[in-house]
Design a protein around this nucleic acid. Structure first.
Length: 262
DNA sequence: CAGGATGTTGGGTC
DNA sequence: CGACCCAACATCCT
């Protein structure tokens, strides 16, 4: 689930409950989730410190203290949950707990694909995240079109390539291509200038709404709403949706609304 | 029971 | 180097 908009939701949770407040205790029920440190190392790094800022780049959440920086990635099933005064149940999948005065911030994950890292400086950060393109939410239309210029191959694989553009995963990419009426296997080189602009506008529109919700909205009109159904019907024209493998993932798309470039 | 699932990495290929 | 493909990772759901 966690793509750019979900991670933004987690960032807001982190910001609201854990920034500028004393961190009372760190515990790590699932130590394997720490990728470049140990429970002791994490405790030492965060002990008697407070988080000062949070930011997000693509699907990465970066939370800085005045010393070390905590780097979080959520993999396929990670989430950040706040539990305090009467809400937010603990779970056996809680891997890291940041205990504050009024509650606990829980990094939770079922499949342990994500993880937490400690970084000292920007160069360390880059090593942890690997190469990241500009954030899909931050990029403007001119820069986006410029990037498309020197990209080959399929459009969906470009959108999902974190080193080309950071933050979009399988579901947001499908949603964007649906909005822009482009087939997922279309070649970038075949997209006309007006289709490229429609693609950027579609991305903007999808992300604006997803960012408002802090996740992909599960609402009528969105593919997300019918994604689980087989085959499911197009929210726009009621045609049966296709589910096809494209660049290693399942693309959901409407063969009637979404068109191969001429 | 088998197959598939939102993400990334690392290997190998062209 | 750039792009593609696959397998692997751990676990749950259909």
């Amino acid at each position: 689930m966690p793509e750019l908009a979900d991670v933004e939701g987690f960032r807001r949770t982190f910001e609201r409950w854990a920034v500028g407040k004393p961190l009372l205790h760190v515990s790590v029920p699932i130590p394997e989730i720490l990728r470049n440190t140990t429970p002791q190392g994490l405790g030492r790094a965060l002990h008697e410190r407070a988080f000062e800022t949070t930011r997000r780049h693509g699907k990465w959440l970066i939370a800085a203290t005045d010393g070390r920086t905590l780097v979080l990635h959520f993999g396929m099933t990670g989430e950040l949950v706040w539990s305090g005064a009467g809400h937010g149940e603990p779970s056996p999948h809680d891997a890291v707990l940041l205990e504050m005065e009024d509650g606990t911030l829980r990094y939770r994950t079922q499949r342990k694909f994500g993880g937490l890292w400690l970084a000292r400086r920007a160069s360390e950060l880059a090593k942890i995240t690997g190469p990241l393109g500009p954030d899909a939410w931050e990029i403007d239309g001119d820069a986006f079109r410029e990037r498309l210029e020197d990209r080959r191959g399929g459009i969906k694989s470009a959108l999902m390539d974190q080193s080309w553009l950071a933050g979009l995963g399988n579901e947001l990419s499908d949603e964007i291509l649906f909005r822009a009426r482009i087939t997922p296997d279309a070649e970038v080189s075949a997209l006309s200038p007006s289709t490229r602009s429609a693609l950027f506008d579609g991305m903007k529109a999808v992300l604006e709404e997803a960012m408002r919700h802090g996740r992909i909205p599960d609402e009528p009109g969105w593919l997300e709403h019918v994604r689980g159904e087989r085959p499911g019907r197009c929210p726009r024209c009621q045609e049966s949706l296709r589910h096809d493998p494209v660049s290693g993932r399942t693309a959901v798309w409407c063969p009637s609304c979404q068109r191969e470039p001429d």
